[in-house]
Simulated scan of single mutants.
Amino acid sequence: MKNTKNIFIMVLSGAYNLGDELILTSEIAWLENRFPEAKITIATYDEKSFLGDQEKYYFLSFFPNNIKKFPFQNLKYFFQTIWTIWKSDLIVIGGGGIFFDNEPGISFQKNLFEWKLRLFFARLFRKKVIFMGISLEVKKPENQEKLAKIFRKDDLILVRDARSAEILEKFQISATNLYDSVFLMPPKNLVKKSKIHTVGISLRDGFLTPYHVEILSNFVEVLSKNHKKIIFLSHSIFPSESHNDIHFVKKIFGEKYEVTLSMNETLDKYQEIDVMISMRLHATILAAQNNIPVMMIPYGPKTFSLSKILEIEPFMIAGENFSLESMLHKFSYLEHNFEKMQEKIHTKYRDIHQNFLQKLEKIDMMEP
């Protein structure tokens, strides 16, 4: 560990996604504690999206990055990436869902090619590679097989859910199942609230049918009529409308409710929230970190897995439970057991955080 002087970290940062930026800052804080003398270089699509101290680190643009519009700049990014990998002692990739074939409008083949290209130089220069807190959001067997080929036996692979470990096991690839990197953030002190005044809601586009939207709209309207303040928490503020929570919420609800307009505003608003209605994985983790009971709308394996980890499965809104009656019933239970549920989510998050740190401490990051 003492010989680790340069670390190159590649999270899918720079797209104004709060979850990805929190993964990055959480991992950096942990790496700095583990390797206090190391210099950290961050790959990003836009360093302005970074939530930490920008003056403290060196930023390098991902390659490719809008290559059709900026071909010559991308040539520079390409050679800078090669140089950075060559001089690094440790390459950290992830976490989060960096490999996927279930995102609307995003090509798995393109995603895989870009990571193969980056890893080619790490292999060429015989660098230690750590996949940290990743998940494999890959459904098709043929894609799973293609993805498995990018890993090597001497890679340290830390996944954040059991399904990802199972996918790799099919191809005789060893992985350690831990947690999402945002669980590295320490829990907030528990100061119990007596009543529910403010309800936070975090949605994401591409996974709700018109039927689900109608039920959700009716549920929000009932809460509002019962004098609950509604705040929609934007986790993705990417300029593209298809990845912009503000646009998605206003398309459904108009200007009727408060919507956060920046990642920092979203983080600040968690201090006001009493109960969370969440689709997004990192909105759910942030709620737990802030001792906020959660009703979760899972949309894929990673969110179903998280509900199990946090033991909030009875408060999932999915399948036959996605009805106005069921949602109101679950909310009523949280309201009548509010103090107990705050204590429960606080204890669960604290235990996960401590367990995560203990397991990481036992792992030799530089072992060949």
Rank of each mutant, 00 (worst) to 15 (best):
L60F: 08
I82N: 03
E47K: 15
G52R: 11
E47N: 14
F100H: 15
F50V: 12
I85L: 06
T41G: 05
F62V: 12
F78N: 01
I67D: 00
P36N: 13
I67Q: 00
I82V: 15
Y57I: 05
K48A: 05
D53Y: 07
K48N: 15
K69M: 07
Y77E: 03
Q73G: 05
T44P: 00
F62I: 13
W83F: 13
V92G: 03
V92N: 08
Q54V: 14
K48G: 09
I91A: 06
V92F: 04
Q80R: 14
Y77K: 13
V92A: 06
G97D: 04
E103V: 15
W86S: 01
E55T: 15
N74I: 06
K69L: 00
G94I: 04
F50Y: 15
N66A: 07
I91H: 00
G97L: 09
W83T: 10
L90N: 04
K69C: 00
I82T: 01
V92Q: 07
Y57Q: 10
L60Y: 02
I93K: 09
D46R: 06
I42Q: 01
G95K: 10
K76L: 03
F100V: 05
S88T: 13
F99C: 11
G95A: 11
N65Y: 00
K87S: 11
G94P: 04
P104W: 12
G94H: 10
I40R: 11
P64C: 04
P104V: 13
V92P: 01
F63R: 00
T41M: 09
W86M: 00
F99Y: 13
G52P: 00
S49L: 09
P71A: 03
I82K: 04
I91W: 03
D53S: 14
P36S: 14
I85H: 05
K68A: 07
I98L: 15
G52D: 08
Q80H: 13
P36I: 11
Y58L: 15
F35A: 05
I85R: 01
K56C: 03
G52Y: 08
R34L: 10
N66Y: 10
F100E: 03
N65R: 11
Q80S: 11
T44I: 01
K56A: 06
F72W: 10
K39R: 14
K76C: 02
I85K: 01
L75I: 15
L75F: 12
K48P: 05
L60M: 13
F50H: 09
L75T: 07
D53L: 11
S49A: 15
F70E: 06
F79R: 11
G95E: 01
A38G: 08
N102S: 15
F78P: 00
